[in-house]
C-alpha cells in the first residue's frame, strides 16, 4: 500500500509540481502561436488542449484503474494456488 508521506516528501512534491506546472504553462502559451495544418476536430484548434486532456486522462486512469482494481480485480498472490 501507499507509503506514508513525510513532510520532506511534501515539500519536494510541491517544488516538483511547481516546476512542471510552469513548464506546462509555457508550452500552453507557445501553443497559441503554433500554425495548425491538420485541424480535424474542433479541439485541434484550442490552444493547450493536449495539456488539459493529458492531465484529465491521467487522473481518470489512475482513479478508474485503482478503483476497479480494489473493488474487483486485485487478489492475494496465492489466489490461484488453492
Amino acid at each position: 500500500m501507499s507509503r506514508k508521506q513525510t513532510p520532506e516528501d511534501q515539500v519536494k512534491k510541491k517544488k516538483r509540481v511547481k516546476v512542471l506546472a510552469s513548464m506546462l504553462g509555457l508550452l500552453m502559451f507557445l501553443d497559441w502561436f503554433a500554425p495548425r495544418h491538420h485541424a480535424h476536430f474542433f479541439w485541434d484548434s484550442i490552444p493547450g488542449f493536449s495539456a488539459v486532456f493529458g492531465f484529465i486522462a491521467c487522473a481518470i486512469l489512475v482513479f478508474f484503474s485503482k478503483g476497479i482494481g480494489h473493488a474487483f480485480l486485485m487478489k492475494r498472490e496465492d489466489y490461484y494456488d488453492d
Binding site: 506546462l24 501553443d31 493547450g48 493536449s50 495539456a51 486532456f53 493529458g54 492531465f55 491521467c58
Partner: peptide, 13 residues
C-alpha cells in the same frame, strides 16, 4: 507541442 503537453501533463499527474 501537443505531444510535449500530453507528456508533461501526464508527468504532472
Amino acid at each position: 507541442l501537443g505531444s510535449f503537453q500530453l507528456l508533461l501533463a501526464t508527468l504532472l499527474g
